[in-house]
Every structure is written in structure tokens, then in C-alpha cells.
Computed example of a mutant assay.
Amino acid sequence: MRLLILGGTSEASALVKALDARIDAILSLAGRTSAPKREPVRTRIGGFGGSEGLAAWITDHRIEAVIDATHPFAARISGNAALACQRAAVPLLAVRRPPWERCEGDRWTEVDTMAEAALTLGPAPRRVFLTIGRLEVGAFSVAPQHDYVVRAIEPIGDALSVPRLTEIAARGPFDEAAEAAFLAERRIEVLVSKNSGGGATYGKIAAARAAGLPVIILRPPAKPDVASVPDAAGALAWLSTRLDPCRSS
């Protein structure tokens, strides 16, 4: 089977490491980071040119199945994948981890956009920890009264124009103990995060809960209605039935 995996997540990484030897896989990454983790399959970097470009690429490379294991907030590529696979008549499976659920003690304010999150911080100066990646930090330029701590894999450059900014380059995962120490050391007063689900970045949510800190959290975007599983194990089971159809009977 020739398989295209749209990746960039821990689920995609787990999947490529456990693939059946009969699968000829290509992992596609968006190219958001300059030094992505090396994976044991062929890897391509960059976009396809929308849904039409992806459909043409699938056809040209004789792809027989596609797995969308992109980030929960990568709505555009998920939409393009659904349209492209429909156009190319190729089966598509999405790996969609469940979002985090509010627990007792969580002080969440849920928002739909980063612009809304910036306004939700309020007018009084606060020490804010942004864990939203580098591409959307610019939304907080409208609230320069706050003292920002930004953690991202890549430098944010001049994306966030505010007087008080601390930039920290780091790649997760971070466990709850490490996050608790970070929040205390940096004197964080409010956390801004995306509801990405999964365990790799949940430590900051649990640490904020334990510290009684408020969290402004972005709701996941809507995704296309396609066949989906919650994890890499589900994707492997789906691939297994396609390799050995008799197993599903």
C-alpha cells in the first residue's frame, strides 16, 4: 500500500514508527519548524497548493490511502485533505484526539479566536504565559499593557510588538511538575492555550489548575465529517483491515 500521512503530531510520529512493512509511506509536514524531528519514513516538507494540488499529488504519486494526523487546529489542511481525497477517489482517515474536558478546579474561559483571547485578558496589567505557537502571538499586540512570556519551538521574531516580552525556545513534552515549577519561577498570573487535547501538552493545564491560575483556552475548530479514530492505534487497525480485508469480517 502506498500511504500518505499528513503529520506533525505525536500521533503521526507513533504511527510511522509502527507501520506494517508492506506499507510504503510518505510523511508530509507543513514546514512550520526549521528542524523537524527525523522520522523513519520518507518525508516531504511544504504545502501542496490547496485541495486541487493535493488531489493531483495523490494521483501523480499513486497514493492508495491518506491519513490526516495533523494538529487539531490545522483546519485548512484537514479541509483540503477531505476535498482532495474525494476528488482523487482515495480513502481518508483522520486521527482526531479528543479535546481536554474541564475538571473540577479548572478556571477556564473558553474563546473562539486569539483576538477574543487578547481582549479577555482585560485592561489591568498581568503576567501572561502564551503557549499557542509562534504564528498567532501577533493577536496580543493590541494588549501591550501585559507582561508576556512566550514559549515556542521557533523564534517569534517581531510578531509580537509589546514593551515587555520574554521569549523561551523549547520543544515539549513538558510534564506537570516541570510546568508547575515554570509557572512559579516565571510568576505567571494567567495562561493562554489552545485546547489541543492529548497528553503531550496537558501538563500546563494540570499545573495551572493546581496553582489556581485562570486559563484562557481556545476551542478547537470545526473539521470535515470524515471517518476518524482517536489515536495511532486506531489508525493502525484501520490500515490492517485494508491490508487484510478478511480480518474485518
Rank of each mutant, 00 (worst) to 15 (best):
I5W: 08
L6E: 04
L6V: 04
G7L: 07
G7S: 13
G7N: 11
T9C: 09
A12Y: 01
A14D: 12
A14V: 12
K17N: 07
D20T: 09
I26G: 12
L27T: 07
S28P: 04
L29M: 06
L29A: 05
A30G: 02
R38K: 14
E39L: 15
V41E: 04
R44N: 08
R44F: 08
G46F: 05
G47T: 06
G47M: 02
F48S: 00
G50D: 00
L54H: 05
A55K: 00
A56R: 04
I58F: 15
H61Y: 14
R62A: 13
R62P: 03
R62V: 08
I63N: 12
E64D: 02
E64N: 01
A65V: 03
I67L: 09
D68C: 04
D68I: 07
A69H: 08
P72I: 02
F73T: 00
F73P: 02
F73N: 05
F73H: 07
A74Y: 01
R76L: 06
I77M: 11
I77R: 10
G79Y: 05
A81F: 08
A82G: 05
A84W: 07
C85P: 11
Q86K: 15
A89D: 14
A89Q: 12
P91C: 11
V95I: 12
E101C: 11
C103G: 10
E104N: 12
E104Q: 09
G105F: 07
R107T: 06
R107A: 14
W108D: 03
T109N: 10
V111R: 06
M114T: 11
M114C: 11
A115H: 07
A115Q: 04
A117M: 04
A118Y: 06
L119N: 13
L119I: 15
R126M: 13
R134L: 12
R134Q: 12
R134M: 10
F140G: 04
A143V: 15
P144W: 09
Y148S: 01
V150S: 01
R151P: 04
A152R: 01
I156T: 03
S161F: 10
V162T: 08
L165C: 11
T166A: 13
A169N: 15
A169L: 14
A170I: 15
A170L: 14
R171T: 06
P173H: 05
F174C: 11
E176I: 13
A178H: 08
E179W: 01
L183Q: 04
E185I: 11
R186W: 13
R187T: 14
I188W: 00
I188M: 03
I188E: 00
V190E: 03
L191E: 01
G197H: 05
T201M: 05
Y202H: 14
K204W: 03
K204C: 01
A206N: 09
A208P: 09
A211R: 07
V215I: 15
I216H: 02
R219I: 11
A222V: 12
V226D: 03
A233G: 11
A237K: 10
L239C: 12
L239H: 07
L243Y: 02
D244H: 08
S248G: 03
S249W: 12
